[in-house]
């Protein structure tokens, strides 16, 4: 199997503190990696480095495919409607997915015209997941998904929808990297931060 994402000897420095070093892994199509570990051990920083938003201190990252990133913040505009938010991000990233179907899938099909400002935290997260579902396949697929606590604020039904989405993405040959505290309902290797002689 060819590797979609290869990381070797990655190190991260924040201020004077070495968050982690020696992080290496390889992910091929259909494989998922769950990043666990206590707060402050560099889970989010690792994802941000992979996303190209943060400079690595040392190490190599190689990938050919496009990425999608989900951070702590939802990147939703409270002044725009649910549908306008979704349509904007999908068109900025050149997605071709069916927007109505995406909203329907995540239980937002009845409120496309509601302004995003009045959504609950769980609904905001569902809308973000709907964005991911528009990049599942076809020409606009973005195979590498970087997700920082994708299950936060979701109820049980929402978590089940998330697991379904991730399974479908993996079945299509995608890759998932997710930082999480509670674990996800998918088959995944685990990377435990703060244990591999890191820190100090």
């Amino acid at each position: 199997m060819t590797a979609l994402l290869e990381v070797s000897d990655l190190a991260c420095q924040r201020g004077t503190r070495r968050l982690f070093d020696g992080v290496s892994f390889t992910l091929g199509g259909g494989e998922a990696l769950v990043i666990t570990g206590p707060n402050g051990t560099g889970k989010s920083s690792l994802l941000r480095i992979l996303a190209g938003l943060l400079e690595e201190e040392a190490g190599e990252i190689s990938h050919d495919d496009e990425m999608l990133y989900l951070g702590h913040l939802d990147a939703l505009k409270p002044q725009m409607s649910v549908m306008e938010n979704l349509r904007f991000w999908v068109s900025l990233f050149g997605g071709t997915g069916d927007l109505d179907a995406a909203l329907e899938r995540f239980g937002l099909g009845h409120i496309p015209d509601l302004t995003a400002g009045v959504l609950s935290a769980g609904q905001r997260r569902r809308l973000t997941l709907a964005r991911f579902s528009c990049f599942l396949g076809g020409d606009s697929a973005r195979p590498i998904w970087l997700m920082d606590e994708p299950d936060s604020a979701l109820d049980d039904a929402g978590r089940a929808l998330l697991d379904d989405l991730l399974k479908e993405h993996l079945a299509r040959g995608g890759v998932v990297l997710a930082a999480t505290h509670r674990g996800l309902g998918i088959e995944a290797a685990e990377l435990r931060m703060g244990e591999l002689g890191m820190g100090s």
Binding site: R48, G52, L53, Y69, G71, L73, D74, A75, K77, W89
Partner: peptide, 8 residues
Amino acid sequence: GSLDLFLM
């Protein structure tokens, strides 16, 4: 958080 996505 929109800026993160813009940069990607």
